[in-house]
Write a protein that binds this DNA or RNA. Structure first.
Lengths: 226, 226
DNA sequence: CCCGGTCTTAAGGAGTTCTTGACGTTCCCT
DNA sequence: AGGGAACGTCAAGAACTCCTTAAGACCGGG
């Protein structure tokens, strides 16, 4: 399973987390200091880093920047109490997610899995094509019959999800889980609204669909127009 | 048999349900709090979760969202009294079914079985074919001799159920349980009406059946016409 | 600090789908 | 053949889902 490294100075927490994750099948290494963590990063090449803020030898933000300079590995920050400011700062510098101490191992694992899922999916693949639609996930660009579509982030994610599963009906709940993953969903109405906007940009209406077909009571599916 | 976890703070109910289900052959674990439940979710990896609303440490909706962020495991919500609003909210956030307290173990087990049957079927991604009928469950499309059938949700579910068990007589009560998710209530007349509509769309009548044959006093079966 | 773009939420209205009850027909059993 | 139960169909209203618009919240940049 996935390789994880924990950078955390508190012996107790380190051991707890390391063992907890190991029990769940992760391949875990841990470092007690920033320096040790950096060395481990290059030697172990983990798929996820769990980084404690408040290390004795180096400021967390500084360390995160250094990590980012050598790798794109996802970093989950563990912060003591609900320190909003530092969390925001961390996300700003490139952290992927965070947990607030005290956290359960289960909670941490949930974040790890979410992060892995996310990056796993973003492995740049060939652009998706459905009819005259072309979705370039790497460039984050979409075109319709060669014309570029000006999509907002959510619209793009929504379109990509539906295109990845072209021909398959996707429920709104599923869409919420996939596209709106932070911080745990919203209402299905929101999906409706974004779908409506997407339709407008695709030059179609719900009554006269070309790509986006709603399946009453179930969800939507994207199909190539005939 | 299937692994189930119960998340319920009331000791009495927890014990009752856990023992009741264990008697029926389920592999049951129980948690007394939301946090414990989450940990159990990742450690035990149950096939079904029974979740009590009104836990002391976390709002049910919040917990359900967290569960959903980790896994797609079916969740059956147990709600005190007939709290319509919270039930609707739960289903909206991704609950699969619910029971209203006080509920019997038998009742709960019926729901569990229905849910398991349902998800077990999701694996069947391959379209079903019976004679000139073709039912694509992923795309939620049905065709007859290549011509698309315009079916309502219930009609589609009904046709799929019968097609999955082609040649076998299915009772209306069973249909109600599967398609209408009402193991107890529900009028069989409703099934008749939908069957009638289905027949019309299949281009046949009850008197001159091609696919849908009623077996008087027993139920209906779907067979390929000869 | 304001501004533009984006997202969420609320609400109305339109359209579809479901349920119900009635009534006629068919089937089975005696 | 007759009676009763099960079944088939119709029509109408209830219930539900969906679409769209508009208004405000939020966020980052100028």
């Amino acid at each position: 399973m996935a390789k994880v490294i924990i950078i955390e100075d508190d012996v107790e927490i380190r051991r707890l987390v390391a063992e907890g994750l190991a029990d769940k099948g992760y391949d875990v290494d841990s470092a007690a200091s920033a320096m040790e963590g950096l060395e481990m990063l290059v030697s172990v090449r983990p798929e996820v880093v769990v980084l404690d803020l408040g290390l004795p030898d180096l400021d967390g933000g500084e360390l995160l920047r250094m990590v980012r300079s050598i790798s794109d590995v996802p970093v989950i920050v563990a912060t003591a109490r609900d320190d909003e400011d530092s969390v925001v700062a961390m996300l700003d510098v490139g952290a992927d997610d965070y947990v607030v101490k005290p956290f359960s191992v289960a909670q941490l694992e949930a974040r790890i899995r979410a992060v892995l899922r996310r990056v796993g999916r973003e492995g740049h693949r060939a652009p998706i094509e459905v009819g005259g639609l072309r979705i370039d996930t790497a460039a984050r660009e979409a075109t319709l019959d060669g014309e570029p579509l000006d999509l907002t982030p959510k619209e793009f994610d929504l379109l990509r999800l539906l295109a990845e599963r072209a021909g398959e009906v996707v429920s709104k709940r599923e869409i919420l889980a996939e596209v709106w993953r932070e911080p745990y969903g919203g209402s299905e109405r929101t999906v409706d609204v974004h779908l409506s906007w997407l339709r407008k940009k695709l030059g179609e209406t719900a009554q006269r669909p070309r790509y986006l077909h709603t399946v009453h009571g179930v969800g939507v599916k994207l199909v190539a127009p005939r």
